[in-house]
Design a protein around this nucleic acid. Structure first.
Length: 217
DNA sequence: GACCAGGCACATC
DNA sequence: GATGTGCATGGT
């Protein structure tokens, strides 16, 4: 079977096994974006505590973040790890929205996908995965998010070579399955779901429920 | 106590 | 272009 068909078959297999994931878990676009930054190389459980802190202090707004000292922000998101760095990243994003959209997040989310992607990639601390998560989950654009699980699962199942770049993986998936926001949303969420359960760094492939033999390349 | 988690920037070769 | 390192908490 050619690779693109296996990419689709993998999606169908995951969908049948786990059903809809309905991501992103957030009450607003801004909360979603905060989550995409806070979860960088971090377990979601630790992110939840940080977001809960921000919410209980009623801080989820562009204006409030703008007037919040970076040091205070870092304290509030402590549980998510890398808190000094992440506080700066959040500030960088807020400054971007203030500067380019007069603080109007809705205006940012409505911008053309390619232009917005380019602009977001220039924010220090916001890399390709975070940008694509913002585009897909906050702005509802049809963009596939590649993450560590995507790479790990696809390579262990022989669907991509060891050395495959972020953009190459993204292209492969976007050329294989229909360019549809809901499908990209579910596919990424499903890969994280099965990855958390069966595709950790070690041990390799323990109890993998998927139909492909991970050892055949 | 080691290893890992829904990355990213920066230095160095 | 590839490879190595710092960033840091909390769960297993």
């Amino acid at each position: 079977m050619i690779v693109s068909k296996r990419i689709v078959a993998l999606y169908n297999s995951l969908q049948g096994r786990y059903g809809p994931q309905n991501w992103w878990p957030a009450d607003s676009a801004l909360e979603c974006i905060l989550g995409t930054i806070l979860t960088q190389n971090t377990a979601w459980k630790n992110v939840e505590k940080a977001i809960k802190n921000l919410k209980s202090n009623d801080l989820i707004s562009i204006e409030k973040f703008d007037s919040l000292p970076t040091k205070r922000l870092a304290t509030l998101i402590r549980s998510s790890g890398y808190f000094n760095q992440k506080a700066i990243k959040i500030k960088n994003f807020i400054n971007f929205v203030k500067k380019d959209y007069r603080g109007d997040l809705g205006k940012m989310l409505d911008e053309d996908t390619d232009e917005l992607r380019e602009k977001l990639l220039h924010i220090k601390g916001i890399g390709p995965e975070t940008v694509d998560s913002i585009l897909l989950y906050a702005a509802k654009k049809p963009i596939f998010v590649v993450d560590a699980y995507t790479y790990r699962i696809l390579s262990r199942h022989g669907l991509i070579p060891e050395q495959t770049s972020y953009n190459e993986i993204q292209e492969l998936i976007m050329d294989s399955v229909p360019k549809d926001t809901q499908i990209y949303n579910e596919y990424h969420a499903l890969l994280v779901k099965v990855g958390k359960e069966h595709c950790r760094k070690k041990p390799l492939c323990e109890g993998c429920p998927l139909e492909y033999d991970p050892h055949t390349v």
